[in-house]
Amino acid sequence: MAEKQVNPKLKTLLEMGPIVIFFVAYLWLREKTFVIGGVEYEGFIIVTAGFVPLMIVSSLALWKLTGHLSKMQVATLVLVVVFGGLSVWLNDDRFFKMKPTMIYVLFGGILGFGLLRGQSYLKYVMDSMLPLEDAGWMILTRRLMMFFLGLAVLNEAIWRTQSTDTWVYFKTFGLTAAIFVFFMTQGGVFQKYAKEEDTPS
């Protein structure tokens, strides 16, 4: 089913809003401790507990408006629910901090599996946005696979060796900026392998 057209600003708000709210709420509650049912919870856990249902609601709203959620969005939502839920249930922030690692290992692994089969799964996701020749898709897929796996390693290094504050800033701004920079640096591939539009004879 074709994706319904919605206001781009509303779509961006639904996609990025939960992350921004998580960041602001963390800055507000990071120094606080809450006692619920006789158990102490740090602010990070409380913010995580709010982020999970917020992601579910925003994803459902996005699906309702557009009639479509990409496989990447669905996988991300599932991992947010699983790892966020584990962090809240076990009162252990490590599970939620592992989530980006699992997401990027999953995406990198899927792209790698496709490459082993001689296919670019990235093409199936982005072909309508970036019409490239097959050779271009293979190059871009290999690079993105390595990039995702590199982000997974970087996330592990940061959450295991740095403070929670550092990890939250990295998660909110660093990962987003890294993905933006990655695609900005692929201009040579886009130019060299762009498909020429068919012209009427």
Rank of each mutant, 00 (worst) to 15 (best):
A2W: 11
V6K: 09
K9R: 12
T12M: 15
L14Q: 07
E15W: 01
I19A: 15
F22Y: 14
V24N: 03
L27Y: 05
F34L: 07
G37R: 05
E40K: 08
E40H: 03
E42K: 05
F44T: 01
A49I: 04
G50W: 07
F51H: 03
P53E: 11
M55Y: 08
S58F: 15
W63C: 04
W63V: 00
W63Y: 13
H68A: 05
K71M: 10
K71N: 08
M72H: 04
L79A: 09
V80L: 06
G84E: 04
V88Q: 00
W89N: 06
L90K: 11
L90C: 05
M98F: 10
T101I: 11
T101H: 01
V105G: 04
L111V: 00
L111G: 01
G112K: 05
L115R: 11
L116P: 04
L116C: 12
M126T: 06
G136H: 03
W137G: 03
L140D: 02
R142W: 03
L144S: 07
M145N: 03
M145Q: 06
F148Q: 03
G150K: 01
L151P: 00
E156N: 10
R160S: 13
R160V: 07
T161M: 12
W167F: 15
V168T: 04
Y169H: 11
G174P: 03
I179H: 09
F183Q: 05
M184A: 13
V189E: 01
Q191A: 13
Y193K: 10
K195T: 06
D198S: 14
T199G: 15
